[in-house]
Amino acid sequence: MNIIEIKGLKKDYPLGKTTVNAVRGVDLNIEEGEFISIIGPSGSGKTTLLNVIGCIDTATEGSVKVGGAEITIMNDRALTDLRLHKIGFIFQTFNLIPVLDVIENVEFPLLLMKKHTKSEIRKRALKLIEEVGLKEHATHRPAELSGGQRQRVAIARALVTNPDIVLADEPTANLDSVTGAQILELMREMNKIENTTFIFSTHDEHVLKYANRVVKIKDGFIMEG
């Protein structure tokens, strides 16, 4: 079953006086539970594609269905709600909230959902922190953690709401190769445990071995996959 269905997706955005055609007509279907890697050089449109799938950017043309829902016709409020409930994000620069400690960062999306009790939230967050191996660092602030540890927190935060999809934009780009590999291992493991669809972008060919499907993108077109 396809969790994501993309047809004829185009995305243009203005850059000064010119228009950049970041995505020029992409058709892509992704099945539930896949661990998929989008690979391509810088400026190929990877991030734009992920942003559109993640409902944080809008398509210029085409159709994008996430979990069967056409997102191109949704308003900001509905898109925000969809992101909160269905999608988890992992960023290249980790993007943790610096004033919150590890456990609070992980709890944050659940608090936004406003449908769980405090104890439920704490229990779920602790479980994920344990799964990513940061039990000992639960009360540390992001500034007190290494890059790898921060990305683990980001993974826990992305998974805490039990999303259908986790989007990771170059999750290993800011990490050394060993740590990067560990992170990808962890993501793969979580993919198996939680059966969550993982889509991650990378320009590093070494990480492709972790993916069970690779989509190659260049100049806004899908070349392969």
Binding site: G54, I56, D76, R77, T80, D81, R83, L84, H85, F89, F91, T93, N95, I97, P98, F108, P109, L112, M113, R157
Partner: peptide, 16 residues
Amino acid sequence: TREIGTIRAIGMQKRD
């Protein structure tokens, strides 16, 4: 700015 982007991406509404 990036933090605002992050919390909006995670699912915080504009009014919050």
